[in-house]
Design a protein around this nucleic acid. Structure first.
Lengths: 217, 217
DNA sequence: TTTATTATACCGACTAGTCGGTTTAGATGA
DNA sequence: TCATCTAAACCGACTAGTCGGTATAATAAA
């Protein structure tokens, strides 16, 4: 009857696994530990997953799906909130900053992509390509927006727009490492703000800049 | 007689361990695998390291020492190559770009900090604080330089200079993930160039910008 | 209404092999 | 001699994965 009890067994296994993998990585997370956490037995696990590899795949599939939804829905929201591509871009990054603020309130911000990346020798190519495609999604969607913006507002410095799009992934992944290692209030959000600053400086209108600091010549 | 044979046993163990940890993470790297790679037997390992934890510690100590040397020596070089703090800053980041270019030529760019970070549940607090201190070193040295620069050239956008210093760590760590996941020619170097661009835009002299694009008044 | 059948979901003992770590003994060179 | 180093056999705990069996509930035949 309680809302917790209604969660399907398979999802409860995935949730417990994800928590443990987040703390210790995939290799160090044993099936027995997962089962102990949810109070189930071995047969149950292997009823839902043929092998531990299949668990790895299920975890990353679920994570990638949720990642893609954040990307797509945030871009849609940004595009509804303004007609100007440049404003859409800044709004989109602003939404990412909001998400970053939530992550900064977690003790150990979690990114299964990074976890798998640093243990990638354990995973088969298909599992790895799930992650690759997820990152390429960000490049594609954000890159497209950047190209539109760059046509109307040529960037102040000559930059490759795909790598500029990639940079949001870079900033997030890097900020995760920093946030997990050095404690600070707003690490991930602050780093994402740097990314927005960079975009604003790059795509500001010629000469007079559009920022708070007084002088307009 | 061969130069390879002269390497002390302990270092050969560390080298083999680091390679395996780089590929699969620490937990999935067994002592037997390390020994198989260097063709030694178990007694040898436990003569040099009391426990596997001690290996973890030795690996990260060695890595952190080399990291610190890169930081300090690059800053020294930058400070010798110019008297102007702003130029020193740009030269320093330029040196980081050179290092990034080397890393981009490796198949699986390696950062033990990140590897440990995503498996941090395995390591004792002391081991983790080695990493924390390493990252704080970068914040401190680069932050100091940024504060000097900011006094002479107030940044175009109001930014926290410590987090701006942290950003070089963020960019590197994030670019590692990208480079290990999506293959591309110059991933890490390109991302580091974005960081330099950002600094140049932030600390450019008012109004007219100092970049390649023609105008020098 | 009763009984047999079937599928899903779950349990826990068990196996073969790997793990980190120990022990004992021998080799090497100062 | 004495410290340094290496080898090989071994240990108990834990690993992923197997397997025979059970509980429940729905369906179908009697």
């Amino acid at each position: 009857m309680s809302p917790e009890t209604k969660i399907p067994t398979r999802d409860r296994l995935l949730n417990a696994a994800e928590e443990l993998v987040n703390a210790k990585g995939f290799a160090a997370t044993s099936i027995d530990q997962i089962l102990a956490r949810v109070g189930m037995s071995k047969g149950t696990f292997f009823y839902h997953f043929k092998t531990k590899d299949e668990l790895a795949r299920a975890l990353i599939d679920r994570f990638a799906a949720s990642d893609e939804q954040v990307l797509v829905s945030s871009m849609e929201r940004a595009e509804k909130l303004s007609d100007d591509p440049r404003q859409q871009l800044f709004i989109f990054v602003g939404l990412m900053i909001e998400i970053a603020e939530q992550l900064d309130n977690q003790a150990q911000p979690n990114c299964l992509f990074a976890t798998y990346c640093w243990e990638n020798g354990l995973f088969d190519p298909e599992t790895q390509s799930v992650i690759e495609n997820a990152l390429l999604n960000w490049r594609r969607m954000l890159g497209h927006k950047l190209r539109t913006v760059a046509q109307a507002h040529p960037p102040k410095v000559d930059v490759d727009l795909d790598s500029l799009a990639d940079m949001i992934t870079v900033v997030f992944e890097g900020a995760f490492v920093l946030a997990r290692t050095v404690d600070g209030k707003d690490t991930i959000a602050e780093q994402t703000r740097h990314y927005r600053n960079y975009l604003q400086l790059l795509f500001s209108d010629e000469g007079n800049h559009t920022f708070p600091s007084t002088s307009t010549d």
